[in-house]
Simulated scan of single mutants.
Amino acid sequence: MRKSFKLDEIDCANCALKLEDAIKKVDGVDDAKVNFMTQKLTLAAADDRFPAVLDDVCALIAKMEPDCEVLR
């Protein structure tokens, strides 16, 4: 499954790249793209694990960028 989510408060392109690299390392993530210009996260993971993977990704984002929020 591949879904896109709006991100709130990504500060810079470098932050977006750091998030993207870290998200790609989360167990269960098949692919991830963080677009600074559109403030969007596109996440790909197995259908049966997607909700759990998304929770892990949201927790990672909150840890790395406390001001950033994934709008579900």
Results as ranks from 00 to 15, higher is better:
70 V>T: 00
9 E>A: 08
63 K>T: 11
53 V>E: 03
7 L>I: 00
16 A>Q: 08
7 L>H: 02
61 I>D: 00
46 A>L: 10
33 K>V: 10
31 D>L: 05
71 L>Y: 00
39 Q>L: 03
60 L>A: 05
6 K>I: 14
40 K>R: 12
9 E>N: 11
54 L>T: 01
29 V>H: 12
21 D>Q: 10
30 D>I: 07
28 G>K: 02
41 L>I: 08
67 D>P: 00
42 T>I: 09
26 V>H: 09
43 L>F: 15
60 L>V: 10
52 A>L: 09
14 N>F: 15
57 V>Q: 04
39 Q>G: 01
58 C>R: 04
57 V>M: 03
30 D>L: 09
25 K>V: 12
63 K>A: 12
36 F>C: 06
42 T>H: 08
14 N>H: 14
23 I>K: 04
19 L>K: 08
37 M>H: 06
60 L>N: 05
43 L>P: 15
37 M>N: 08
58 C>K: 14
11 D>Q: 09
33 K>E: 06
65 E>N: 01
17 L>S: 14
17 L>F: 12
48 D>P: 03
19 L>R: 03
56 D>C: 09
36 F>K: 03
56 D>W: 06
37 M>D: 10
52 A>W: 05
71 L>E: 01
14 N>S: 11
47 D>R: 07
62 A>Y: 07
36 F>T: 03
23 I>F: 06
59 A>R: 13
21 D>H: 11
68 C>H: 02
34 V>G: 05
69 E>D: 02
23 I>Q: 08
49 R>S: 08
22 A>V: 14
21 D>P: 09
20 E>P: 06
11 D>P: 11
3 K>R: 13
41 L>V: 10
